[in-house]
């Protein structure tokens, strides 16, 4: 799972840099989107730390724990996206889409690590 930690840290760093660039370029709303993305990577970095703390050394158990949270946590975001679309709340929908896209990135990285 070392690969995944590095992946998450790199993404957090990239999002942070991009947000700073966007803010400097007077694109504040897009900077907020990057912060949202960064926040998702940060959440799963924490999840990974917790998994390591609880099942340290047992790679399979760490992976199982992480995968379960990776499905569990975004379920609420998917529901929120559905609700936002239903009510025509495009702003909220966009935020939820950004969060779910970040989750897809993490899932792809996890697959690669297999």
């Amino acid at each position: 799972m070392e690969h995944l930690i590095k992946f998450l840290e790199a993404r957090i760093c990239k999002c942070r840099e991009r947000a700073a660039e966007l803010e400097k370029d007077f694109r504040k709303d897009e900077a907020v989107f990057e912060k949202v993305r960064e926040n998702v990577f940060d959440i799963f970095k924490t999840v990974l730390h917790v998994a390591n703390a609880q099942h340290g050394g047992d790679e399979a158990a760490v992976r199982l724990f992480f995968e379960s949270r990776l499905n569990q946590i975004p379920a609420a975001w998917a529901a929120s996206l559905e609700k936002a679309r239903l009510h025509g709340d495009e702003n909220k929908a966009l935020i939820e889409e950004i969060k779910l896209a970040a989750v897809s990135d993490i899932k792809a990285a996890l697959e690669e690590a297999k």
Binding site: E30, E90, N91, E97
Partner: peptide, 13 residues
């Protein structure tokens, strides 16, 4: 060079 959802977001504003 922006995504369509980002453009939609800005257009709504």
């Amino acid at each position: 060079n922006l995504t369509a959802p980002t453009i939609s977001f800005h257009l709504k504003k």
